[in-house]
Simulated scan of single mutants.
Amino acid sequence: MKPTDFFEGGTVSVSAETYTVYKTTRPDPEAFATIQDETETTVIAEAGSVDESTVIEAEDGWKRLTFEMVLPFELVGFLAAVATVLAEEDISIFALSSYSTDHVLVKETDVAAATRKLEGLGCAVER
């Protein structure tokens, strides 16, 4: 099983929403994602939706690209392939994985270039 098996004919959806990646003092149950470890809490939420009194730092202007395909745990190199083709265009990513789906956040200004690169892998990109 190779990443190319999933790219060809796979669908990537681009969020209508614009997200902010927040470093906060606590989780936000309404956020798209919250990542919490022993040292910090990161919240990914629609821009302006987090209680500002909890925000330590914020990085605005992200769009979410969701790989609308079930990715098995034993699949090796999927995100590496995505990161590589986007890096070729100097596109920075913020990667997130759920149980069976991967997401990457890219800056809003990079969506068009990211779309072209993902289509080059064989993905159909939906906006």
Rank of each mutant, 00 (worst) to 15 (best):
K63H: 12
A81Y: 02
V50H: 10
Y22E: 02
G10N: 06
D90C: 04
E119Q: 12
T11I: 07
F67K: 02
A81D: 11
V55F: 13
T20A: 05
V70Y: 00
D28C: 14
V14E: 03
P27S: 12
G9C: 03
S100P: 10
S97F: 15
Y22K: 07
A16L: 13
T34K: 02
T4P: 01
T20D: 03
A31L: 02
A31F: 02
T41P: 02
R127I: 01
T25P: 13
F67V: 04
T11L: 02
S97W: 15
C123V: 11
A33T: 09
G61A: 08
V12K: 01
L86R: 07
P29D: 14
L65Q: 03
A112C: 05
T39L: 10
E52M: 06
D28G: 07
L105T: 12
F94D: 14
V55P: 03
V55Y: 05
V82F: 02
V43A: 08
S100W: 08
F6G: 00
F32P: 07
L79S: 13
T25W: 12
T66C: 11
E52R: 11
E40N: 14
Y22T: 03
A31N: 04
L105R: 10
K23H: 08
A81N: 13
E46G: 14
V104T: 15
I44Q: 10
E52Q: 14
A113Q: 08
T109P: 08
F6V: 00
R127H: 09
V50E: 06
E40D: 15
A45N: 06
D5F: 00
A33F: 05
S13I: 01
